[in-house]
Amino acid sequence: MKNEIISLQEVTFTYIAEDEKIRPAVNNVSYTIRAGEWVAIVGHNGSGKSTIARLMNGLLFPQKGKVRIFGEELNEQNLWETRSQMGMVFQNPDNQFVGATVQDDVAFALENNGIPFEEMVERVEESLVKVKMKDFMNSEPHHLSGGQKQRVAIAGAIALKPKILLLDEATSMLDPQGREEVLTTVRQLKEETDLTVISITHDLEEALLADRVIMMNNGEKYAEGTPEEIFQKGQELVDLGLDLPFTMNISRLLRTQGIPLMADHMTEEELVNDLWTSYFNK
């Protein structure tokens, strides 16, 4: 079993509401993420998942409990060293660009971290190749599509050679093509580099790609398991304000029309195979 890379131990964080009532955004949450995993943290708006993201990258510190990164409790003394090993990609790609060109933008964080020029040039090109954006090195960011912008943001994150890539609703503002581009890029990076990926999302289609899913509800950890184990909850997820993956919705619709499918399928391949089996067994 691989080493623990992030853990939350009975973590609680409370915001003070306008009416001054105490409402824990995160309440007594514990979990562990191991090196090389892809873990999706899912939940409806207000479930606590965004607060979890801020606790993991040190934008917030828990009022109770501990956040441990790389085996050490996260604190103000080790915060910047810890963040240097964590790449972040946020929701709105337009808010992340600071360079006049794609290569300038990828180089920005490297320059801030004092990377020598020759090494910086190599890292910029290497990271853009990995996200298939090398041909756009001299392009102005505002000329790119949403998916391309997020791939450049990922390039900027991985150029720092982090151990963890944290995606905070990174696909929520993208069209289906852009979303597919980003998720394919992340999947390939994980396979090639054994990167630890944490995706904060309300999109269960994205969660399908994860090794493990942590489901938040009303500030608490509601469920944890493989995508298969989580999606077996079916209607329970819908009742909690989440949309089932497209293929599962199609499976359910077909069953209501009398087509004898074996299960609510999570992938198109599973659904097609079941349909063929049902057809030939008539």
Rank of each mutant, 00 (worst) to 15 (best):
P141Q: 00
K130P: 11
P93L: 01
L144Q: 03
G46C: 04
E73I: 10
V98Q: 07
N138D: 14
N28Q: 10
N92F: 15
P24T: 10
I52Q: 00
L55E: 10
P141R: 02
Q148M: 15
V102E: 06
G87E: 08
K134A: 08
V124Q: 13
R54G: 03
Y31A: 12
P141H: 00
Y15E: 05
K134F: 10
I6E: 02
A40R: 01
K49V: 06
N45F: 05
E111I: 12
D105Q: 05
G71I: 15
A35E: 12
E37R: 01
M133I: 12
Q85F: 01
A35L: 04
L144W: 00
I69F: 07
G46S: 08
N28P: 09
G99R: 00
L110Q: 08
L144I: 04
E140L: 11
D105R: 06
G43F: 00
E126W: 13
I5M: 07
Q103E: 13
L128W: 04
D94N: 15
F61P: 04
K132E: 08
I69T: 04
M133K: 13
E111K: 15
N28C: 06
G58S: 08
L74Q: 02
P116V: 09
L55Y: 07
M86N: 02
T82S: 15
S84C: 01
W80Q: 06
D104H: 09
V67A: 08
D104Q: 11
Q63I: 14
F97W: 02
T14N: 06
G99Y: 01
T12P: 11
N75F: 09
I16T: 09
E37S: 05
M86G: 05
L60Q: 12
E20P: 01
F90T: 00
H44N: 13
N57S: 08
S50A: 14
Q103V: 01
F108P: 05
A25Y: 05
K66P: 00
Q91K: 11
V89S: 06
D105E: 10
F90I: 06
N112M: 08
T14L: 02
G147F: 01
E125N: 02
M56R: 10
Q91P: 14
F90R: 06
G71D: 14
L59G: 14
T51V: 15
V131S: 05
N28K: 14
T101A: 15
P116D: 07
G46I: 05
V39H: 02
V26T: 04
M133D: 13
G65M: 02
V98E: 03
S139M: 08
S139L: 08
F117D: 04
P24A: 05
T101H: 15
G147N: 02
A100C: 00
F61C: 01
V121C: 13
E10Q: 13
A107W: 09
V29K: 01
R54T: 10
Q148C: 07
E37P: 09
F97D: 00
W38M: 08
L60A: 15
V26D: 02
